[in-house]
Design a protein around this nucleic acid. Sequence first.
RNA 1: GGGCGCGUAGCUCAGCGGAAGAGCACCUCCUUGACAUGGAGGGGGUCACAGGUUCGAUCCCUGUCGCGCCCA
Length: 939
Amino acid sequence: MIDKTYTPSEVEGRIYAAWEDAGAFRAGRPERAQAAPYSIVIPPPNVTGSLHMGHALNNTLQDILCRFERMRGKDVLWQPGTDHAGIATQMVVERQLMERQEPGRREMGREKFLEKVWAWKAESGGTIVKQLKRLGASCDWSRERFTMDEGLSKAVLKVFVTLFNEGLIYKDKRLVNWDPKLLTAISDLEVQQVEVRGNLWHIKYPIEGTSEFIIVATTRPETMLGDVAVAVHPENEKLGHLIGKFAILPLVGRRIPIVGDDYADPEKGTGAVKITPAHDFNDFEVGKRHDLLPISVLNREGKIRDYEKHLSLNTEEELLHRTRGSVVVTDTSEPEIQALKAIPSELRGLDRFVTRKKIVEMLEDAGLMDKIEPHTHMVPHGDRSNVVIEPFLTDQWYVNAKALAVQAIAAVREGKTNFVPKNWEKTYFDWMENIQPWCISRQLWWGHQIPAWYGPDGKVFVAETEEEAVSRALAYYQETGAISAGQATNMATHPSKREPFLTRDEDVLDTWFSSALWPFSTLGWPDETKEVKRFYPTAALVTGFDIIFFWVARMMMMGLHFMKEIPFKDVYIHRLVRDEKGAKMSKSKGNVVDPLGIIDDYGADALRFTLARGAAQGHDIKLSPQHVENNRNFATKLWNAARFVEFNGAARVAGFDPKGAKEALNRWIAHETAKASREITEAIVEYRFNDAAAAAYRFVWNVYCDWYVELSKPLLTGPDGAAKDETRAMAAWALDEILKLLHPFMPFITEELWKVTAEQGPKRDALLVLSAWPAHDGLDDAKAEAEIGWVVDLITAIRSMRAEMNVTAPMPLVLAGTSAETKARAQRWAEFVKRLARISDISFAEAAPQGSVQLVVRGDVAALPLKGVVDLDAERARLNKEMAKAEADIKRVEAKLANEKFVANVPEDVLEEEKEKREEAIARKAKIVEALERLKGAA
RNA sequence: GGGCGCGUAGCUCAGCGGAAGAGCACCUCCUUGACAUGGAGGGGGUCACAGGUUCGAUCCCUGUCGCGCCCA
């Protein structure tokens, strides 16, 4: 017996467990050994993460694809896992240490700290996995991977070393985006531009040997300590003559050249800009063009350097702990030392923002501040730390992304990988074609430590294992005579003796470096596993547009370089889930909707169906509780339809073939089922999730429930016999097909119904999740459609008239001047029409009785003798309205047909169609005229 | 400044060359045996604006105006 109501919270956990117990999600099930493979890798959520609405959408869509393809018989691998989220995880654990008042990361040292991180991961890292299960995600959890696990780490090392040996990874001194709070480099992509209201300070720089000034405008006066030039546009009429002269840098007295460079926009600010190559990306380029040595005046914490204390960019505290491997140790040049010495002592060691204030005061005191203009501009912020990012000159590891991008661009150009919707290609190309070197080193501890070892002279040895790096290094230094054979042997056999002769790079790789390998590293690469062979390349990648650069592009590069093949055939890009008002969900706005809360209240199926129905390509989804409620109602509707079927003894019949149905009603629902399954299948294949969901919704509610169930009632409650048996079998069959068609969208309720409906009829072979997707051939039936379509239209027309005329009482129906076919049809369906349209009796006549209301249904006249029952004036008004419509239709079509050019240009079938339209409209008008005549007679 | 996208019923959105659609909301009626988490019916749109292409434009092109997002 099916319960009266469906309670998701009582069912979902049990159903999920049943799937897992059956190993339903496992790739490589023996019976599918010959099946085509289908694979998707999950965009790995952060191990620190918990499920938000974006995940819910992303994973619902992947789950629809996976369940669909699994039902289509494929050997599906949905590869799950999480990434180690270097910065985020390290921050979480450090915060935890602080809260517990335990020693900090530096105090406990790298090894101890990493133990703490792993302990944290073991305890809290599985949150999101549990949450994905509540959503119904059919991942192969037996293959769950983690970017820091052994296999993936092996892949990372292999890739790093290979690219290094190929010259595609190298160390370089460049400006990076430096996070002065987290004390690490971050990539361009981790920087958010934030609009900030600041000032444009106009500062007077004295011109050497004159009493004149050149005025520069800047948003960052504190960087003037590191100025190396002033630039003006070479064609600047007012200032051009100053090129070649020198300015005297205020407060420090350093002499700096005035150079001509078209970077200085004559229209902007004062037309002259200060050049600070060590603290600005544009200035760095200008500096290079003019051979100017950068001067770094800030240390890694964003404080003014103090040359008396130390000359590295590290602070004193850092110096105590540093080893030579740290990339931040940078040699300081002699001119730089001189420049640092010139910095007023009261500024040294001050924070950058304090310095700004102080410098402004000092300049004002010196009378060198020309003016201060309020100025709103974009300021880079770290997306994790939320502090202002500092362009910072350091040694870091880079990937030559430009070289790797060539193939990645070509693969999309050649259509090997397709973006859906297609227009994302443009975004991809724009970025790929202007790609910058990818900074992959991070000054963190949690991550894949860079496999590079340095000798005493700074020479670098890169290898997958320490043994290999050490042996190569020792051989090298033995050859150069730096060490003796004995020393070499000693260090080779005793790891503890290596330091400080050989030290390992302390830094780790960007988390995205390991994520870039995800489509193959998770399959076991670099080992030659059967999974790599079978499941690479993957079929589709489903992700948000925000990580096209971070992730998609990099997977393309790495996949093509190492696997010689694209990582995925299709990239489906979905949009954002917004709140019901269309605002972006954010913690600070407090409008975040928790998917787990929605699942608690409405069930996972309702949430999934809502997201699927909203997932139109290229559109954000506005999620309102109202929509979720509607889809919960849809689930209820389905549940009740199943109850109806069960009550009426409509059990499945073994070997039932819908093709053999005799009853028009049954042939009709088979026809409609085939149509719906075609629509749904095509839509999913084309990633039109909203269309697929809408087609399913329409079929279940507006076809099966509204008409098939209603029309089947007389048969099901009527006398026993072949027709009743057939209807029972068909009702059950169609319900089964519905369960299958809805399963990818609403897996829980459909699986539950699959189970409870199994109590009647033959035993089920398998869980719904593993059953076969509907493929219906030979069920299309135009004749059945014409028959049932007529019944539906007739009933609808009568109901409509009733509502309009406000007539509720039963009434007789007279079919006037109908064809033999219609007459036969009416006789066949008399009982149904009577029941659903509240008709007391059906009769036939040559002409409609006087004073009757006449309806035109598919060309036939249905008359309802309502003299004295309805307001005939109202009926006249209704008919006149109909007539106006018919006349307008005729007029429009005739205008077209009278147009010579139209007749000449239009394709034959369109012309035919138009002619038919005309005939239909004329006939319709005639019927209306006739009806009006009858009415006249009745008055 | 460059790029992408969007302005269609009160709301959320489909449609994207041949007679304006759905869901929700709204109004009217209905506790008839699956379902009131329901049923039946209805009203409601110069498809942002202005040009152009076409026999024909919500759909294609150009421009304007609004609104997003991404990259400088």
